[in-house]
């Protein structure tokens, strides 16, 4: 039987504005998106405000960005498995979404490599030790650069959450404008 999702009552025809959008988005994979938001904000803090954070830098880097990042990996695996087995995999996702996932994977690998003193992939695939060791030196830079590329990608290309919010802003703006014109 059709998915029995229980949605609280809302008015039709609907109003589209920031409040309704944020309310709606809040119920979409909330744990995944919350962690993603925390990691993005703390990552930007570390990169842009690092010299001014003083003693806070260690806590933000290790706990907020590091341990939550490790938790994110587990959540991401569950999320991806869910997506693979969902109807949306073959109906709504496009190339941009898959590129988005690729960004996540790069960020996870480079994050793990940067954070772990043992370089986890050495334990998993020891044969790659010689090939990957020199790269480890650049992983923090790759991690940071990919984050900025991802932000731009998510803003510019369809499918990204930031792009969606930007578009909805435009829609609500247009609606307001047309209402004003009517009155």
């Amino acid at each position: 039987m059709t998915g029995q999702k229980e949605i609280s009552e809302k008015k039709y025809p609907p109003d589209v504005n920031y409040r309704t959008v944020l309310k709606g988005l809040a119920r979409l994979d909330p744990f995944f998106h919350l962690l993603m938001a925390i990691l993005l904000i703390t990552g930007l803090m570390i990169d842009l405000l690092g010299p001014w954070l003083g003693g806070w830098l260690w806590s933000i880097r290790t706990i907020a960005h590091g341990y939550l990042g490790a938790l994110f990996i587990l959540v991401f695996i569950v999320y991806i498995v869910q997506v693979i087995y969902s109807k949306k995999m073959r109906t709504v996702l496009t190339a941009t979404n898959y590129v988005d996932f690729l960004f996540y994977i790069i960020l996870i690998i480079t994050g793990m490599t940067t954070a772990s003193a043992n370089k986890p992939w050495i334990d998993v695939i020891p044969g790659l030790f010689h090939a990957l060791s020199p790269i480890a030196e650049f992983t923090p830079a790759i991690h940071t650069a990919v984050t900025y590329v991802w932000i731009v990608f998510s803003t510019v290309f369809p499918g990204g959450i930031l792009h969606g919010i930007a578009s909805v802003y435009l829609i609500s703006h247009l609606k307001k404008k047309s209402k004003m014109e009517r009155s």
């Binding site: 979409l28 949306k88 496009t94 435009l170 829609i171 247009l174």
Partner: peptide
């Protein structure tokens, strides 16, 4: 604009 704003969440597909 809506065509591009769609979050591809697939909620509509499920129901």
């Amino acid at each position: 604009l809506w065509m591009y704003a769609c979050a591809r969440c697939g909620e509509c597909v499920d129901v």
